[in-house]
């Protein structure tokens, strides 16, 4: 009988230990994913679905001499290509006369800062592994990121077993998929032809820069926001932003942006809407003319509380 109890206690301890290893293993996989997102060479086609937006995009990614080079070719709608050199994004349109610069910018599900901020989110999410599945012809490890509280969304990730690269992801609210990213075909580790990393539209293409140029950073780096948010969901921390009318926050996974426009009249009516997992709320400023817009991958009630807590910052 004594052996039975000892055996039971031993099994219990082993299972507890296995549970801890489980979480550790999951975070190790996330670490691998973070590195793979930057440093793997790959070519493939992925789909990205967010709300009513459904994009099919061809991607070529190369990590060379410490630099990330990438080209995205949009397969649906107006022809356009985005070429990335580290953080500089340039969009190319083949016809300069009929180019629509006012298009959405689906870049994929995760920030390149994803891995750096992940350490801050261990108290807010549970990480667990759930076996293997086949995605885009490759074996993938399934990983779940479950929020510990109701006030944020969860994630399901499928990472390439060999390299850790993200092959599929779902952003979920309880059981409901709000955003989907999935490679339909991919080649990893093959040599990349340099021509595949440049726009194919030639010299006559319309070109527009999507990211601010570096000099703007130096000019505005010391600027502090003139607005503050007096309430944030647990775990959200402020991030540096280049503009004093923009506040940006993250809990390591989800992000929130607060735009404050001090125009004479509000440009948009007070409204609440969503685009996939992204909630957008606009409100008139309290005791001042202008408008607040909160955009983030958080539930509506969280975004609303954030919007209502915006007030002028006093230094």
């Amino acid at each position: 009988m004594k052996n039975f109890y000892l055996g039971t206690i031993g099994a219990l301890l082993l299972s507890l230990g296995a549970g801890v290893c489980h979480a550790d293993d999951a975070t190790q996989w996330l670490d691998r994913m973070g590195v793979a997102l930057h440093e793997q060479d790959y070519q493939g086609t992925f789909i990205y679905m967010r709300g009513s937006q459904f994009e099919t995009i061809q991607v070529t990614h190369q990590f060379k001499d410490g630099r990330e080079l990438e080209r995205l070719v949009y397969q649906n709608g107006e022809e356009r290509e985005i070429v990335r050199r580290d953080n500089e994004l340039v969009c190319y349109h083949p016809d300069p006369h009929n180019a629509d610069f006012d298009h959405n910018l689906p870049l994929g599900p995760f920030s390149t800062a994803f891995n750096d901020n992940l350490a801050t989110s261990q108290d807010l999410y549970r990480f667990s592994l759930h076996g293997k599945e086949r995605i885009a012809g490759r074996t993938a490890v399934k990983l779940k990121i479950t929020p510990r509280h109701d006030n944020r969304f969860g994630y399901r990730l499928w990472l390439d077993e060999e390299t850790g690269l993200l092959l599929q992801s779902q952003l979920v609210d309880r059981n409901r998929v709000l955003e989907l990213f999935q490679f339909s075909s991919i080649q990893i580790g093959q040599p990349i032809d340099t021509a595949m990393l440049n726009s194919s539209f030639g010299d006559t293409a319309a070109v527009h820069q999507l990211s601010p140029v570096i000099t703007e950073v130096a000019e505005q780096q010391s600027s502090r926001p003139v607005w503050r948010v007096s309430w944030l969901p647990d775990g959200f921390k402020p991030m540096y932003s280049r503009q004093s009318n923009l506040l940006h926050f993250t809990d390591g996974l989800a992000t929130l942006s607060v735009f404050v426009e001090q125009t004479g009249t509000a440009s948009l009516p007070d409204m609440t809407t969503s685009h996939g997992a992204t909630t957008v709320i606009t409100r008139r400023l309290k005791n001042a003319q202008g408008q607040i817009t909160v955009v983030g991958e958080v539930p509506v009630n969280m975004a609303r509380r954030v919007a209502e807590s915006v007030e002028p910052a006093l230094f």
Partner: peptide, 17 residues
């Protein structure tokens, strides 16, 4: 606004804690 938020979120150089 959505595009600005996307760029803030997805580009490392734009953001740090």
């Amino acid at each position: 606004y959505l595009n600005k938020h996307d760029r803030m979120t997805r580009l490392k150089g734009n953001t740090h804690l």
